[in-house]
Design a protein around this nucleic acid. Structure first.
Length: 411
DNA sequence: GGCGCTCGTGTGTTGAACGC
DNA sequence: GCGTTCAACACACGAGCGCC
C-alpha cells in the first residue's frame, strides 16, 4: 500500500462521529444544560442595562473551578444578550478577552479595539489615551459593550490594583456620559482579589455568580446533549455516559469537571474509530479514562497560550526531570537543556534573565512548581518540579510547539 | 523624518547562600 | 574569608507603530 492509499483509507473509514468538533473544548454549544440558573442570574444582574441602556455601569464576576463552564456561560450569555439587544434596537457588542494572552492594560484595551474593529491607533498611545479614544468611538457610533475578562487573576497579578481600579471606575470622571462599557470578570477563585484594595474588591464582588463543580447527574445531562451533537445515533449507549459521569461527578468523588468528561467521551470515540468498529464500548471508555488526567487537561488548556520559548523551556524542564529521575531539577540544568533544545530546533535561545522570567510565568500559571533552594545546595538556586505525568504532558507540549513553529516558519 | 509610546529582551550590578 | 552560583533588580536598547 503506498502513502496515498494509507491516507485515503483513513479518510474513507466509517466513523462513529458525525460532528467531532462539538466535543472540542473551544466549541460553544447552542444550549448549556445545567447552567440555566447561572444564566438567569446574569440576566437579572444585567437587566437594568438592557431596560435602560447607558443609565448604569454594571460589573459582574463569574467564579468557578476548572471545567465548570465559566467561559461557555459567559459566551452563551454574551451571544444571547446581543440578540436581545438587537431585537430592542440597540447595538450591543460582546467582547471576550483571555487575560492569559492579554494580561496588561495596554493589551486588554487594544484587544477590545481590535475586536470591535474601531479605527483607533494601538501604537503611539498610552492605554489610558486608547481607552479615552474608545469611549469617544462608542459614544459617537452609539455602541454598547459587554467586555468579559477571562482568567482575570492574571490581569490582577500583572497590572495590580491601579489598572483594575482604572477599568472599574472609568466612568467616575465622566458621570454625565452614557455608561457604554460593562464588564464580566471571570476567575477560578476570589482569593486573587485580595491583592486589590478593599474598595476595588467590593466593587467587583457586588454581583457574583458562582459555578459549582458538576454532580454526576449534571454531567450525564451534559454528556447526553453533546453525544447527540457529536455521534451518530446508536453508537454511544446511555450506560457509557453514566459510567463517565459517575467517575467524574463531584458527588461520586470526582472533580466535577465537564471538560475532562467530554475529553473522555472524545477519546473513547476515537478509540472506537481506530479499531474500525461502529459502536463505542465500555472498554473504549475505560481506556480513555486511563489516558485523561484532569491536571493534564487543565495544563494543556493553559499551554495553548504560551509563547514558543516558554514551551521550549517547559519541554526542557520535562526532559531534565525525566533524565535526572528526581522530584526537582535546578534551574541551571533546565537552562542547559533549554539551550540544547533550541539548538536542535535551530532557534536562538533567550538569555538567563528571560529564562528566569519564563520560569516565574510557568510557576504563576500553576504548570510547574518552583521553590528557592535552602540548605544543602551550593549558592541559591530555583528548584523546579512538575506533578502531572511527564510523558503525557510532553506529548501535549510537542503538539503545541509544532503548531507554533509552523506559524513562525510560515511568517 | 523626528518624536513618543509600549513591549520584549539583554546586560550589569548587588547581595544571599553555600562550599571549600 | 574567598570563590561560586544564582536571584533580584535597574537600566538600556531596539523594534514596531502612529502622530505631527
Amino acid at each position: 500500500m503506498n502513502s496515498n492509499d494509507v491516507i485515503a483509507s483513513v479518510f474513507k473509514k466509517i466513523s462513529v462521529f458525525k460532528n467531532i468538533e462539538t466535543l472540542y473544548p473551544e466549541y460553544i454549544p447552542e444550549n448549556l444544560p445545567r447552567r440555566e440558573i447561572q444564566l438567569r442570574q446574569l440576566a437579572e444582574i444585567f437587566k437594568p442595562m438592557m431596560l435602560s441602556p447607558g443609565s448604569v455601569f454594571i460589573r459582574a464576576m463569574i467564579v468557578g473551578g476548572v471545567g465548570v463552564g465559566k467561559t461557555a456561560t459567559a459566551k452563551v450569555f454574551g451571544r444571547e444578550i446581543r440578540k436581545f439587544a438587537s431585537e430592542k434596537g440597540f447595538d450591543l457588542r460582546y467582547v471576550h478577552i483571555n487575560c492569559h494572552r492579554d494580561r496588561t492594560l495596554y493589551e486588554v484595551v487594544s484587544e477590545i479595539i481590535r475586536q470591535i474593529g474601531a479605527p483607533i491607533p494601538i501604537r503611539g498611545l498610552s492605554p489610558r489615551e486608547m481607552m479615552l479614544a474608545l469611549l469617544n468611538y462608542v459614544e459617537k457610533h452609539d455602541i454598547y459593550l459587554l467586555v468579559a475578562l477571562d482568567e482575570f487573576d492574571y490581569f490582577i497579578s500583572t497590572e495590580g490594583n491601579d489598572a483594575v481600579y482604572f477599568l472599574i471606575r472609568v466612568y467616575d470622571e465622566y458621570s454625565d456620559t452614557k455608561k457604554r462599557i460593562n464588564y464580566i470578570f471571570i476567575s477560578r477563585n476570589i482569593s486573587s482579589l485580595s491583592m486589590l484594595d478593599p474598595t476595588t474588591e467590593s466593587y467587583i464582588l457586588r454581583h457574583m455568580v458562582k459555578l459549582d463543580p458538576y454532580t454526576s447527574d449534571e454531567l450525564f445531562d451534559i454528556l447526553s446533549y453533546r453525544r447527540d451533537l457529536a455521534f451518530y445515533e446508536g453508537t454511544v449507549d446511555d450506560e457509557l455516559l453514566k459510567f463517565i459521569a459517575d467517575s467524574k461527578g463531584v458527588d461520586k468523588g470526582g472533580e466535577g469537571n465537564a471538560r475532562s468528561a467530554l475529553e473522555t467521551l472524545l477519546l473513547a470515540g476515537q478509540a472506537a474509530d481506530h479499531e474500525g468498529v461502529q459502536k463505542v464500548t465500555i472498554e473504549h471508555v475505560r481506556k480513555a479514562l486511563g489516558v485523561v488526567h484532569s491536571e493534564v487537561i487543565r495544563i494543556s488548556d493553559d499551554i495553548n497560550f504560551l509563547q514558543l520559548h516558554e514551551l521550549l523551556l517547559l519541554k526542557a524542564i520535562i526532559r531534565s526531570l525525566k533524565k535526572k529521575k528526581t522530584v526537582f531539577v535546578k534551574i541551571g540544568e533546565v537552562e542547559d537543556e533549554y539551550n540544547y533544545i533550541c539548538q536542535l530546533f535551530g532557534i536562538k535561545p533567550r538569555r538567563h534573565t528571560q529564562v528566569y522570567e519564563y520560569v516565574n510565568t510557568l510557576k504563576h500559571m500553576g504548570i510547574i512548581e518552583a521553590k528557592v533552594s535552602g540548605k544543602g545546595f551550593r549558592g541559591r538556586t530555583t528548584l523546579i518540579s512538575i506533578t502531572v505525568p511527564l510523558n503525557e504532558l510532553e506529548m501535549k507540549v510537542d503538539e503545541v510547539i509544532n503548531a507554533k513553529k509552523e506559524l513562525v516558519d510560515a511568517s
